[in-house]
Design a protein around this nucleic acid. Structure first.
Length: 220
DNA sequence: GACCAGGCACATC
DNA sequence: GATGTGCATGGT
């Protein structure tokens, strides 16, 4: 399994090079982006983050202090704006109450405890928690998302119905706990997913790789 | 104009 | 424990 995963990584890396994922200016922006991108195209999230910056709301204290209506309008482009206004504020409330509003303090906590705490915040599920742990706190956690499951299932590596935790365990048990590797691996999966999952949902010509067209560099 | 996007919480069985 | 539903904007 380790070899299959590394082969997948190598093919994607050969095609895309270094992704430098996650895009974002600092740990707090990354954490907010992780919440805003729930079931939402990243382009829409970018608009909302740009709005936050323009409005001077890209810090936990300001998000909590401003009116609900103002924050909703700023977040509107990211979709589900009423739900997400609540969710980002739940995160900010925990950050301010427990860590003086500082992501560096949050990141100081041990991985296991921190993951449980993040999952205890209403609006932060497994994927969002792991995004924050890996990209905002630098913890060695493998992030699973819809692309991860789809790409691996289409390559026949896993059952499409595999759950979040078993899929996370598959990566974490077969790869060394390397933050940079995990960051880049997930980044490559996101880029591959954006490129192929919708544009090329099927590949009839390639029996080994139902995802990608024959002759594509990503053929595994 | 239909369909989808890097989820999550909650209700119901 | 599995399955269904609401949440909402913007691109294809």
């Amino acid at each position: 399994m380790r070899e299959r995963l590394l082969a997948l990584f190598d093919h994607m890396a050969a095609h895309y090079g270094h992704t430098g994922w996650w895009p974002g200016d600092g740990p707090f922006e990354i954490a907010i982006g992780a919440i805003l991108t729930q079931n939402t195209a990243w382009t829409n999230v970018e608009r909302a983050i740009a709005n936050l910056k323009t409005a001077g709301l890209l810090c936990p204290e300001a998000m909590l202090a401003c009116s609900t209506g103002e924050l909703e309008e700023v977040l509107r482009p990211s979709g589900y704006f009423r739900v997400k206004t609540d969710r980002v504020r739940n995160f900010c409330r925990r950050l301010v109450d427990g860590y003086d509003g500082r992501m560096e303090e949050l990141a100081r906590r041990p991985l296991g405890e921190l993951r449980r705490e993040l999952l205890g915040i209403k609006g932060v599920g497994p994927e969002t928690a792991d995004d924050i742990l890996l990209y905002a706190c630098g913890k060695p956690v493998f992030v699973v998302d819809a692309y991860t499951r789809r790409i691996l299932a289409r390559h026949g590596v896993v059952d499409p119905a595999i759950g979040y935790e078993p899929l996370r365990a598959l990566f974490e048990e077969n790869l060394e706990a390397d933050v940079d590797l995990f960051k880049e691996f997930h980044g490559l999966i996101v880029w591959t997913g954006k490129d192929f999952c919708r544009k090329r949902p099927r590949c009839e010509s390639c029996p080994l790789c139902p995802l990608l067209a024959e002759g594509q560099p990503l053929h595994v």
